[in-house]
Design a protein around this nucleic acid. Structure first.
Lengths: 200, 200
DNA sequence: TACCGGCCTATACCGACGGATAGACCCGCG
DNA sequence: CGCGGGTCTATCCGTCGGTATAGGCCGGTA
């Protein structure tokens, strides 16, 4: 199996390459930027799999991915990254990546993943995607989060007041401060924002 | 690599087993129910990977998974299914499954997946999880979905009316029917339900 | 001690929302 | 043709939500 590995961190690149060769990959070509990667495909034909570091000279977000996909004649191109988020992984897949390999993956697992992607399947580690995406907590007090929970359940101020054993006016107050903190214009938008940012 | 394959469909079971053996698995034991699977682990020790069909005598949801996990000394046990939903897959992983293999997976990919899981990683096919989960559409008219979209953006009736070039009263009407159709008590709950059921 | 911030309560106002009812238009279908 | 469903509009009314102002309580801190 012929692999092209593009990563600008020399140490990472070389150790991965050595491991892949010892795992039985017939040829592992390494480069340290996108342009060289394209040159490599021109020189020696398309690879069974191309691994691209997400943070690398010339990548420019996902446009480097598109260029390599074209250069590799539509055969699988995957993204490799130590830092990227699940959202970026999803974008990459949507943009046609064959998979997403976080550098936290174990070496043996990486080999299996590479075989998997070379077979034409899409690979993304499950536990990586389950990461709950930063959860940008907006400095809410305990009361406010309780009220926000009620909002997200579509309750009225009166109901929330009853549930928390408070007065309705108090809930109104909290809702107002919640709207200010979350930059929402009303309770509905506050609830939607809360769900988006997963701070329920 | 020693594999235990438990599936009550004889044809599926035998073809998968033959393919796995031809792919270099040293030993593939096949059984057709949970009890026999446990007996197999007792007889010949733990396996590198156990594959359990989700719909099989004795499975009883995910309790069969728990029994096999114990019987296999904590080594990987994965779920195999042709029908189960992404939600069930997520549950299975949460319950300690090593992965989830839909029967739509290609044979070569399945072998890679098995190697991956045997290496201790959690495997779930990305495109399988992306399936947008039924999208239980609640028979909404075109207008209603437009209004619902506005609701989900936290807009007021007046704003929605302006955007759709209608009168505010009309929006009120649609909001009311939306609440009835979605079984919501107010706009906020309607918006949350819409998001949950992914019908925006 | 005095002060501050988080929390709770109260009163009051106004606009928005939710519900009911009713009339009108257009279009497809039996 | 009549009928029903979807759509838009209108009026009315009660409730709820959002804002403002003002004050009391409590725990931590300068």
């Amino acid at each position: 199996m012929r692999i092209l590995l593009a990563d600008d961190h020399g140490l990472v690149r070389d150790t991965i390459a050595m491991f892949l060769e010892s795992a039985g990959m017939t040829e592992v070509v390494t480069v340290d930027n996108v342009d060289e990667a394209i040159a490599a495909t021109d020189r020696s034909g398309s690879f069974d799999l191309v691994l691209l570091d997400y943070n690398m000279p010339g990548m420019d977000g996902l446009s480097g991915l598109a260029r390599l996909r074209e250069a590799n004649d539509g055969r699988p191109v995957a993204i490799l990254s130590g830092t990227a988020s699940p959202a970026i992984a999803t974008e990459a897949i949507a943009a046609g990546a064959a998979g997403f390999v976080p550098k936290t993956l174990g070496a043996k697992s990486m080999v299996s993943a590479i075989r998997f992607m070379a077979a034409g399947e899409v690979f993304v580690p499950f536990e990586f995607m389950q990461q709950s995406e930063a959860r940008t907590v907006a400095n809410l007090t305990e009361r406010e989060t309780e009220v926000l929970r009620g909002l997200c359940e579509g309750k009225s101020n009166k109901e929330i007041a009853r549930d928390l054993d408070l007065q309705e006016v108090t809930i109104k107050l909290h809702v107002k401060t919640l709207c200010r903190k979350l930059d929402a214009r009303n309770r509905t938008q506050a609830a939607m924002i809360a769900r988006d940012r997963k701070l329920i």
